[in-house]
Amino acid sequence: MFDSFPEQINENGKYVFYSHGFIVEGTNPTPVHDRWGVYDFPAIKAALADSDYHLIAYHRPKGTDPFAHAQRLANDVGRLLKSGVPANQITIMGFSRGAFITALTSHNLEQTPVNTILLAGCGRIISSKYADIKMNGAFLSVYETSDGAGSCDKLRNRSSRITSFDEWSISTGKEHGAFYRPIPEWVGPVKQWIKEKS
């Protein structure tokens, strides 16, 4: 597990980038939301880590420009590709603001599509305000039925370059907070999808 870009790249390895939600931007890895409680970034990283792949999870500073950070991630993917890592062995994943950044990254990787996972990522911003964003490669959406960020059907339908689309809903009653902690309802299936696609 890495919190910065790894110095040594294994061309036969698999790599997963996880981008956290907006509340974690800053210096506190476990901030508390009035409604949804603790966002446990360290526990999420620990749960997503796996011997089958290398997890890279940056802790973004406060005030991060999502467009600039998405370009940074796209550049990091490019570094992996230049080191010989195949595109289908790279997965980008994010929740909420991190999902928006992940979608922007996928959009920027039109020529080299990787696997993309959006967790509660298809709310108003992706679906309406930024209607020019399109996904590429294998695409997974996971959303909570009690949350306002629902299905990614609209994003899928306008993305002609996706190679596959999977979408699952979970129903925990925890709203957006369902992804604040590494609960088995989403962590297990997401990790399985990563292993199957990469």
Rank of each mutant, 00 (worst) to 15 (best):
E175C: 02
R124C: 01
T64G: 05
F95Y: 14
L155T: 10
M93W: 00
F179N: 13
D76L: 07
F100D: 10
V190N: 13
D132C: 02
Q192K: 13
F5Y: 11
D76C: 06
G37R: 04
K82S: 14
A68N: 08
S128N: 12
A138N: 15
A47T: 05
S159W: 05
R158M: 03
I170N: 13
G148W: 04
I126W: 00
D153N: 11
V187R: 09
V32W: 01
I44G: 12
L155I: 11
F22E: 09
T64D: 07
C122R: 04
T64C: 07
I90G: 06
D147V: 09
T102S: 13
L155V: 14
H54F: 02
I56F: 03
V85W: 02
D52P: 03
H33V: 02
G26I: 02
T145F: 00
E167V: 01
A87Q: 12
D153W: 00
T30I: 14
N88G: 00
I117T: 12
G94E: 08
V187D: 11
F165Y: 15
F100V: 12
K174E: 12
E185T: 11
F2W: 01
Y180H: 15
G37H: 03
P6Q: 03
D76M: 12
P61R: 00
A47K: 08
P189A: 06
L81F: 05
